[in-house]
């Protein structure tokens, strides 16, 4: 079994919940209003969507915007914390990673190895 979402109490059939659909790397994924992007992904059975520098899979860890393990690109904005971002109908979510090409590849002081500055680092 994987993570699963329970319908709202008193609406066992899910009536009264507002459905929404987002795309994740182009594929449609259904959720309901009020879920975070991470919640939609988890409820759809996806526990990992990002990779660490070595290429190892990562998913939700802290759930409250502290660890940055859940970063995704939403509607073109990079480095959005999926656990904080409320999903909106039609959101285009793209997975992103921080993998470095090869292993132990060169990394600059304040940019991710794929050339983008991860949030907070560029200025921090």
């Amino acid at each position: 079994m994987s993570p699963r979402r329970l319908p709202a109490r008193g609406t066992a059939d899910g009536r009264g919940e507002r459905p929404l659909r987002i795309t994740v790397d182009g594929r449609p994924v259904d959720g309901v209003a009020g879920q975070t992007v991470a919640g939609v992904l988890l409820a759809a059975g996806r526990t990992a969507w990002r990779r660490g520098p070595s290429g190892a899979a990562r998913g939700v860890f802290c759930g409250i915007g502290v660890c940055f393990d859940c970063l995704v690109t939403v509607n073109g904005d990079r480095d959005v914390r999926a656990c904080l971002r409320r999903a909106a109908d039609g959101d285009e979510v793209r997975t992103q990673s921080r993998t470095r090409p090869g292993t132990g590849g060169s990394r600059s002081a304040d940019a991710g190895a794929d050339g983008y500055p991860e949030h907070g680092e560029a200025t921090g």
Binding site: G34, G59, C62, I64
Partner: peptide
């Protein structure tokens, strides 16, 4: 995940990990 993450997901989104 953290204990807090599990709690936040279940309380905030009715999602069990």
């Amino acid at each position: 995940c953290t204990a807090g993450a599990a709690q936040a997901l279940v309380k905030g989104e009715r999602l069990v990990v």
